[in-house]
Amino acid sequence: MVRDVSFGQYFPGKSLIHRLDPRAKLLIFIAYIVIIFCTFNFAALAVTTAFTALFLVLSKIPFKFYFKSLKVVIFIVIFTSLLNLFYGSGEALWQWWIFRITWEGIQRAIFVTVRIICLMLASSCLTFTTSPTELTDALERLMRPLKVIHFPVHEIAMMMSLALRFVPTLLEETDKIMQAQKARGADMESGNLVKRVKALIPILIPLFVSAFRRAYDVATAMECRCYRGGAGRTRMKQIHMGPRDVSALVVTALVIAGVILCNIFVTGVF
């Protein structure tokens, strides 16, 4: 069933990571993506991996959900690491037909695997511990300076939160329609590609029809409550940066510094 996908789901909780200001989390996440791709030797990679492990543990989300989210990318991980494994240059350690494995290839494969896995774990951690509302709120606040150049910050954030809001609704709807068509004997599990694509028509058409209907309903409901854009709007949940958030940012800064130091001072490959 579609609802089994755990990637992107929010798990309510009260852990330290849950309670962090969403803006801090978002900033840390962006910084994290940058440093994960700036790890040039094993020492730096180890530092970022340890950092990842730290916030995974602090999030207090059962590890099996993280494993589940990794399932989605397992194919990409295997594919890219194999590509890297066979395309390294230098002295061959092992060779057969066109396949050549070099020390450099092995290293590259390890780096790429660890990077993708860490990236996936970090983004899962962000969505597991931050509700969609918090996330879009944080985005809106962080993008506020862009208003100077007349970038429609509020509108973008509103669209995002509406879109996110309707993801579960549409999933549920898809599920319902699938059940209804299955009850009429729709066969979605067998046949070749053409047949399977055709089998989607009875699901997609009702889904589109209802998505449009919902869009009109939401627009009407918003107008009924006098929605007229972002000007002068206050919010129910204020977000505050506290000492906790500042210390989290400081820790992240230290990790970045550590990674840079490792890159410079630990001599090695790459």
Partner: peptide
């Protein structure tokens, strides 16, 4: 045979 609640949304 199963007729769901609000079955009109399954017409396509």
């Amino acid at each position: 045979g199963m007729v769901f609640q609000y079955p009109e949304y399954q017409l396509f």
